[in-house]
Design a protein around this nucleic acid. Structure first.
Lengths: 181, 181
DNA sequence: GTCTATAATAGGATAGAC
DNA sequence: GTCTATCCTATTATAGAC
């Protein structure tokens, strides 16, 4: 079950950009050794990495919800986790990168599930804060959309600084009473 | 100067995923013919496509600003153009895709410029609507972030429908008086 | 400017020794 | 389970005819 990684390689280079040689170098295992653990080759490796992220997301996002702190605190904790995970906007999104290769139906299910986990966690937080059901879902979508978009724009403009601004905006607005939404 | 395209191929498959064979098929030109026009190979082709998009963005986004219609109308026109360009959320973002290969410094400049053009156009619209300078820039960033993020999430979840919701939200909120922002 | 042909290399994948 | 060696194909790129 291994140094499950290759995660950073796939995140940074994308599915097509990451070669087996890259993954071999990153894991310290020869290519043929990778095939021993993952007979399906690169696709199976990527899938494994995705499922690993899925589990990590579930842990990182749902765990904080179980405490008895007020929703605003939980949101802050959630955003701090996200900030760390994405290295303040400098790291790319694995979900975004692999989503680019989402024609591969092997990835569709896994990606859909991972995004679902994320959206469900944020939605649950919104509901706990007393927002109506429809608003909660829309707010959750908005959070995920803005974070993923932020990473795209940060990479495109070379400026990761705006990531912090978006995190701040989300912290202030996500749980606000519904008005214009 | 050619069927400048290959655009769709690069947008759909990404830089690493699009082979010269793909680009050859898409343009109808033999690979060696592509090298005649673009001695720098795939990288030069991608750069050319990026610059073409840059020009298209400038045309599509700044042109509407020149009319005498009220800002809200201009915004609606801008969003309609964007909706069409991204096929209602079904088409990927070329900027996002090539941004994934932004380590290539050849792309950094071009990407930064294209995003700058887009941001400037939206900022100009916000300023025209009377928003303070800092708010205008932040709103512009927010629009671009949300649209790029929307495309990532649409691809990842397989659901392009939320794109329309985000366009609607932007139409209603982009030029609103500054409050919580 | 466009083509066919071909070179050179990198990529994904397998065989078989240890 | 890990390695070296190898295979085959795809990929980038060039040469040279038309």
């Amino acid at each position: 079950m291994y140094r499950t990684f290759g995660t950073a390689t796939l995140r940074d280079k994308g599915y097509d950009g990451a070669s087996l040689a890259d993954l071999s170098a990153a894991t310290g295992l020869a290519k043929s050794s990778l095939y021993h653990s993952f007979p399906g080759g690169k696709e199976e490796i990527a899938l494994h990495v995705l499922q690993h992220l899925d589990a990590k997301l579930a842990r990182a996002l749902f765990e904080p919800l179980r405490s008895k702190r007020p929703p605003a605190r939980k949101l802050a904790a959630m955003l701090a986790t996200i900030d760390e995970h994405y290295d303040g906007g400098r790291a790319a999104s694995l979900l975004g990168r692999l989503g680019a290769s989402a024609e591969r139906l092997a990835f569709r299910r896994a990606l859909g599930h991972a995004f679902g986990v994320w959206l469900d966690a944020v939605e649950a937080l919104c509901l706990e804060a007393g927002l109506p059901s429809a608003v909660a879902r829309a707010r959750a979508e908005d959070l995920v959309v803005r974070l993923e978009g932020e990473l795209v724009v940060a990479a495109g403009t070379g400026d990761p600084a705006v990531f912090a601004r978006t995190l701040g905006a989300l912290r202030r607005s996500l749980l606000a009473p519904p008005t214009d939404d």
